[in-house]
Amino acid sequence: MVHMNIDFILYCFVGGLVYMDTDAVGQFMISQPLVASTAAGAIFGNWALGLTVGMILQLPYLVEIPVGGTKVAMGNLGAYVAAGLAAQLAASDPNKLLLAFALFFGVLISRGAIPLQDGLRCVNLWIAHRADAAAENGSLAAITRYQYVGALLAFLFGVIVSGMLAMLGVVVWGLLAPLSSGLKFNGGLIEPLLLGAGAGAVLYLFLKRETVLHALIGAGIGVVYLVYNYL
């Protein structure tokens, strides 16, 4: 139990870093699902499942471009929570529906948690007004302080939201799992269908009339490589 708690605290801490890297500080891409979900899986002792969730949820969100103040889905945090939830529950529950539930929960978070983010933006706006007032007094120390407060708030937001949503996910799964225990379910199509969806998303992003040939050459080289390896 103590071991579990330490894992959960570490998971929340990394959740804070993931949220911070998404927008507020650095943007070094450690918050991308490929990295963050694998980390979430590793924290709960199942990096392979984390990687699977990360690969599934990485590609589709690439089409959402954060231009200016556009509100985009919180795909990074959603994927992080989904991976943490899947890895955490998979250790004790072999239910095949678990991956589908975790992914669905992550996708819901990516859209449903936007109002929470709006709340944080309101707080940030208030901080910015305070900083403007500090600028009027020429107080560099205050401006620096408000900047750090903004970064800290983003971190705390990530810690709290990732932790609370993971706990909510565990509770919801606790209610749903008994209902699904007697059902026959083949979960083998979830991963290929959603990986295909990701491929469709990046294809949409890059495929234009003038780049069709490049895509075909890429596919051709892939086929040749596979045939060569197969033979």
């Binding site: 491929a199 992003l205 890059f206 780049t211 069709v212 490049h214 895509a215 890429g218 892939g222």
Partner: peptide, 14 residues
Amino acid sequence: NNLGSFLCGLLIVG
């Protein structure tokens, strides 16, 4: 963008 299209083809096959 050209490289991205090329890699898309490779990724789908991969």
